[in-house]
């Protein structure tokens, strides 16, 4: 289980998280929605220890991330698959080598096992046969899927998706949404999906949390968020800034 309690984070003068609370129960998929720049990606980076909270608690499976020593932090990271917003593939490596990178950090895996598992992961995201291509040689949607293949290669217990559908066409967006659902069914991983794409959030999430001004403003099942009466949430869902202005 991932648990964040009272997390505060500021970059210089700008407070991004301001008492942020969220639980991601084991086996569930939670969508964290909110406007661009609201701090959604910052939440993900706290979970894997890429950022440290100024105040508050971030724990995974009951262990405080900030208190982990280097080996324990690496062990945590091996149990988490992180899908980056722009895939963050290593551009000097082929897709197969990208996927193999995480596997090389797992003790006891032979080279043959590593290659086989990387090929399986690429197959799982429908990129079988493209393993020898470089990131620059494939489309944006394929890059996203390659990023997902890399994230799932180590068979993680947790999958963190940072804007998995941003910048994609509607068809590819649907493909990615279905892929997230399929991975959840096949791997049973706990998921946290950061997105401002409501369609994907409704499709993949068991529950949704709406991040506004550094804290969770609304949290509930997708059906509850859909009919929320909160004008800030409604403004976001309907893409209607005038609702916010009314409130102000």
């Amino acid at each position: 289980m991932i648990r964040l309690r009272g997390v505060h984070k500021a970059f210089g003068e700008k407070a991004v998280l301001n008492g942020f609370d969220l639980d991601v129960p084991r086996g569930a998929t939670v969508a964290l929605i909110g406007a661009s720049g609201a701090g959604k990606s910052v939440v993900l980076k706290h979970i894997v220890g890429l950022l440290a909270a100024d105040r508050g608690s971030v724990s995974v499976d009951g262990r405080e991330v900030a208190e982990l020593d280097q080996q324990a932090l690496y062990a945590l990271r091996r149990s988490v698959g992180y899908v980056f917003q722009f895939a963050a593939l290593f551009d000097s490596m082929t897709l197969a080598h990208n996927v193999e990178m995480g596997l090389r950090r797992i003790p006891g895996l032979s080279r043959r096992d590593i290659r086989r598992r990387a090929a399986e992961c690429l197959e799982l995201v429908d990129l079988g046969g493209l393993g020898d291509r470089y990131p620059a040689e494939i489309s944006g949607g394929q890059r996203k899927r390659a990023g997902i293949a890399r994230a799932i290669a180590t068979r993680p217990r947790y999958l963190l998706y940072d804007e998995p559908t941003t910048g994609l066409d509607p068809v590819t967006t649907t493909v990615i949404g279905r892929l997230i659902l399929r991975l959840r069914e096949e791997m049973g991983a706990t998921g946290l999906v950061v997105t401002h794409d409501l369609g994907t959030a409704y499709e993949v999430a068991d529950s949704m949390a709406f991040l506004h001004e550094g804290r969770v403003r609304a949290h509930g099942a997708p059906s509850e968020i859909r009919i929320s009466g909160d004008p800030v949430v409604r403004s976001f869902i309907e893409g209607a800034p005038e609702l916010m202005e009314t409130m102000a």
Binding site: L50, Y82, A88, D91, M101, G102, R105, R150
Partner: peptide, 14 residues
């Protein structure tokens, strides 16, 4: 700037 270094860290590389 393309988060490749962050990606390395999330894969338990120093």
């Amino acid at each position: 700037v393309t988060e490749q270094i962050d990606a390395l860290e999330t894969m338990a590389y120093d």
